[in-house]
Nucleic acid binder design. Sequence first.
DNA 1: CGAATGTCTGTATTCGAATGCATAAAAAGG
DNA 2: CCTTTTTATGCATTCGAATACAGACATTCG
Lengths: 345, 345
Amino acid sequence: MVNITPVKRKRPTMYDVARLAGVSQPTVSRVLNHTEASALISDETRQRVLAAVEELGYRPNTVARSLRTQRTQTIAMLIADISNGFYHPMARAVQDVARQYDYEVLLSNSDHVYENEHHFCEIVLSRPVDGVIMVPIHLTTEDLGRYVEQTHIPFVVLAEQIDHPNIDVVYVDDEKATYDAIRWLITEGGHQKIGYVGVPDFYPPGPRRRQGLERALKDSGLSLDPRFMFEGDFTLESGKRAAHAMMQVGELPTAVYVINDLMAIGVILALQEAGYSVPGDVAVLGFDDIPEATIVRPTLSTIAQDPRDIGLKLATALFERLENPEIKERRVFQSSCRLIVREST
Amino acid sequence: MVNITPVKRKRPTMYDVARLAGVSQPTVSRVLNHTEASALISDETRQRVLAAVEELGYRPNTVARSLRTQRTQTIAMLIADISNGFYHPMARAVQDVARQYDYEVLLSNSDHVYENEHHFCEIVLSRPVDGVIMVPIHLTTEDLGRYVEQTHIPFVVLAEQIDHPNIDVVYVDDEKATYDAIRWLITEGGHQKIGYVGVPDFYPPGPRRRQGLERALKDSGLSLDPRFMFEGDFTLESGKRAAHAMMQVGELPTAVYVINDLMAIGVILALQEAGYSVPGDVAVLGFDDIPEATIVRPTLSTIAQDPRDIGLKLATALFERLENPEIKERRVFQSSCRLIVREST
DNA sequence: CGAATGTCTGTATTCGAATGCATAAAAAGG
DNA sequence: CCTTTTTATGCATTCGAATACAGACATTCG
């Protein structure tokens, strides 16, 4: 039996194209790129080159180009949790903008884990990307500063707490949004005993949202009853655990503010499983407006962020910096929230 | 005012390290890599080099390395819908395996759109990656074959219908899983009139799941009533639309098999909004077991895929091919499903 | 003690495309 | 008709790391 091994042709290079077209390699480069020199190429040569490109199915080798130009046409993006629906429109928006600029996005996921955030930055150091968008949960300004200085590429983060001249910041004004929503709960809903399910303070949104709550309570002459304060870790399960703890207190608040929807849904489910009615016994207010918020019954009232807007702001800021390297000061962009009243309040 | 511009130091290269250590650039390369030549480096030189690396904070430049070695240590992965929870564990599993092999994953998202699938492949052609994992919804064997031949890199797909010697296939035996689940619905649940919410036939899972249903009905002496067949597009909204159409028929089936959970949830919500009870009036069976399945009330009975297992199989197959380029025939891996009975049936 | 072997390191080249510089041919100007 | 300018293209080099090959020196052996 004859072993007909198909010739494993190597990918054609510019040099191959040049030979076929009877020109030099740089000429091919000039035809395919839009530098000023490329305007000078004669029509006839151009046609021959393009025909050769077509015939060989030539594709430029991005690696070689990157090495020469020192640009990779790639940005890296780190989100905190791929399972969290909040990040999907954000990632999509970034990819949409990137595509307009002919950039690719290297998407990663930290799962809120400190080591993963570092690992991502390490990757960014050795795998040259042109810019970085990230959602740092644990990394501090110092950590990021060190990376930024080593890479000399622009960073844009979704994190108010980062304060570094070479890092732009997008953040959500959740303190104010929380304040407004709680004031509404008090004035419109008549709630006086409001519980709180948050996260440990080292998670960035924790303190801001709690402060919004506390400010609203204070301005209404109320205060946060420590018995009704619980901590979770963003997951639905931890929301359930918080609700169980709450039901152990011996008394229930008339409303609970839960700092993300997933935990809020956990709270609703746990309360219902224990025989309580939402919002009859306890009203529940979430934060995020994830798709699941309209799947639970009662549907979840929540403070909606606009993740697509956040993504657009992140990407726009980054590409502005990529195009204007002279930008040298921290810029801050704010994305707003709005209260969506559904059935759970 | 003096303008103190910080010296924008360029990233150090191997050459810089070499100069500082008083050796040649290749020596640095040998110290940092584990080729056979690197064993011969004297301890003293090695220490000097490592000290220089440390002092300069040197990181190898991946682009240069890739150009020389013709390997990028990167694989590309295309999923069909980033919002679909089914894909998250799959992507995670792939990333976990990739990390073991010291590879990065370039993650993309087609949103079920034909052009995006092509765009992804085009990217793969020019941006050298070492391997590809994808979920092709629209691309045919011919489309993929063309790309595979141009790139000479291994592809692994989650799609039974692709049949090409250089493409490994992972698939879910959903025909059989559907068959078993429907038989169970009939024998245990006593259902005789079973409706169906599917997707157009050009979506791969459509035909297989319908065939499983039809075979089960046939083997029970039943058949699929065309009045109870509906088509959606995987979204919750389209599930709602299907349910509304179903309620127009004038008669309801006693059970509906919906080919994905998101649509199944839409069916449940629409039925409830119209005042029907699930499973009292209509039982609903989904497919996928996404997190939302335990959030709806009643919780959704469904056929669970094991996305992590699928991801592991995809990644394992790919890395096997990367390590054994001599593999030349299509390999098929099957991931199994299991019925999860909850409250909706 | 000379040849053979082994140990360690340097030199030169390569990967594929971009680009500064040189130059040939054609067009314009005097 | 010869210089100057313009037009169109080629030559040589570069990006940063990997690697084939060569060579210097030390060691071993007959």
